[in-house]
Write a protein that binds this DNA or RNA. Structure first.
Length: 449
RNA sequence: UCCCCAGUAGCUCAGUUGGCAGAGCAAUUGGCUGUUAACCAAUGGGUCCGCGGUUCAAAUCCGUGCUGGGGAGCCA
């Protein structure tokens, strides 16, 4: 007999008669004559109730079933007379695949996130983490669906890189095990911190492209919003200016959020009900409000006029501190807000110089509770301006010869941004620590699993 | 890397002024005719994070290290 997944069973309108399911026992409630078991196979948040009468041939073994035990259950799918579920299975045959001994660490109660992090290999068997990782999977597909529908090409850029692009952050060194030949590629190489520069090359050939893959930062960051290995989505669009770049980012965020609400309703409900009381309102804001759009200069004015006491001084020319960003997104706008046109001194070389000669066409999307979700810009497409900027910042132009070539031969205005995938997941689930939206998080001093 | 907080049973935590190590849940065993994180009863379970110090006496005070959490910086 063929196995049916529990998410399929639970959606049935009428019983097909006999069914076979396989999964793990979540809870078991025994009486003298029968035993109730909730079986979960990970296909859905909900489990299915199984009733085992004591006239089953192997009932003495069934009595020994513990939480976490894997089983195969065959029986009639019947409408449940009990409250709380539509369907239940009256078991005619229960095969115990593997007993989970008493040392199984997941109990029939709520565990702390900190504890579950120490058993990251088992935490997807809990309701909350099962839901989180189903949503993560669905969002990865949704990204590809969004870009497929928009006619973008999916590009995979190298994870091992030679160039120290944008000089942003510490990079992990890639070495060869052979003594004396550590530089396998003949020169220093690193794990990528961004696929942007190669993506620009392909945007200037295929038009609209996006990269979506792992990214690495060797920063010694110890916060709930940083990990050393994370996934980043980077669209790059030819013939696209800063405004269109923002339009695109806003459309993307709304599309993905709506997709989660449509396709992961049951799992999203768990987060709305039990994880973050303000999540429902936040999602409504994401879907239905127009994101704010102001320049860095306007933001400085708002902060100066706010009369709020900040720990760090608000001053034109310096980067905004977390508390400033939080004030703008959470207090002033109470919704996501794009900040544009930052002073050139606090942004990388590739951003397009504005006509004022002081600011560049940068854009950050600040989101309540998360901070920076998107960072991007219109790229500098004028060869001479770009070369001048690189000189100012003491970058070796010869290392970027291929990058500069793109501005030499048929250069066009183009734009793009990076979106931190895990931060997006935090935003739509209300999960407050980035370590809990990635299967096996890598953080300084921690690489278990 | 810096600042703050924490570390006691498998989990979540209490432990008063320095004076015999505690609870709930879980586990184990038994009971129970439809349960919903079932219920009732009994039983077992401790390197009080490690090291050093003060003291007649340290889970408790001091020093130090480690681990975890919150915040900052850096960023996505």
């Amino acid at each position: 007999m063929k196995r049916t997944k529990i998410n399929v069973l639970l959606k049935l309108e009428k019983t097909p008669g006999k069914v076979l399911i396989k999964g793990w026992v979540r809870t078991k409630r025994d009486s003298k004559e029968f035993s109730f078991m909730d079986i979960n196979d990970g296909s859905a948040l909900k489990s299915i109730q199984v009733i085992a009468n004591n006239d089953l041939e192997n009932y003495p073994d069934i009595e020994k079933i513990t939480t976490g035990t894997s089983v195969a259950v065959a029986g009639q799918l019947l409408e449940s007379p009990g409250k709380g579920q539509k369907w239940e299975i009256q078991a005619s045959d229960i095969e115990i695949i593997n007993i989970a001994p008493e040392s199984y660490p997941l109990q029939k109660k709520r565990h702390s996130d900190e504890f579950l992090r120490t058993i990251a290999h088992l935490r997807p068997r809990t309701n909350k983490y099962g839901a989180a990782f189903r949503i993560r999977s669905e969002m990865m597909f949704a990204i590809h669906k969004f870009y497929k529908e928009k006619g973008f090409r999916y590009l995979t850029t190298p994870l091992i890189t030679g160039a120290d692009c944008e000089g942003a952050g510490e990079m992990f060194r890639v070495t060869s095990p052979e003594p004396g030949k550590e530089n396998f590629f003949g020169r220093e190489s690193n794990l990528t911190v961004s696929g942007q520069l190669p993506a620009e090359m392909f945007a200037l050939a295929l038009g609209d492209v996006y990269t979506f893959g792992p990214t690495f930062r060797a920063e010694n960051s110890n916060t709930s919003r940083h990990v050393a290995e994370f996934w980043m989505l980077e669209p790059e669009m030819a013939f696209c200016d800063l405004k269109e770049n923002m339009d695109h980012g806003e459309e993307l965020v709304k599309y993905l959020t709506q997709h989660a609400m449509n396709e992961c309703k049951e799992d999203m409900d768990l987060f709305i009900k039990f994880v973050d009381k303000s999540l429902s309102k936040r999602i409504d804001t994401l879907l239905n409000s127009e994101f704010g759009r102001i320049s860095y200069t306007e933001a400085i004015d708002i902060l100066l006029k706010s009369k709020k006491k900040f720990d760090f001084k608000v001053e034109y020319g310096t980067d905004l501190q977390s508390e400033h960003e939080r004030y703008l997104a959470e207090v002033y706008f109470k919704k996501p807000v794009f900040l544009t046109d930052y002073p050139k001194g606090i942004k990388p070389f590739y951003m397009r110089m504005n006509d004022d000669g002081k600011t560049v066409a940068a854009v950050d999307l600040l989101v309540p509770g998360i901070g920076e979700l998107i960072g991007g810009s219109q790229r500098e497409d004028r060869l001479l301006v770009l070369e001048k900027r690189m000189d100012e910042m003491n970058l070796p132009k010869e290392d970027y010869w291929w990058y500069l070539d793109s501005r030499k031969f048929g250069s066009v205005p183009h734009s793009g941004f990076g979106l931190g995938f895990e931060r997006f997941l935090m935003m739509i689930t209300g999960i407050s620590n980035i370590r809990d939206v990635i299967p096996f998080p890598r953080t300084p001093g921690s690489i278990d699993f």
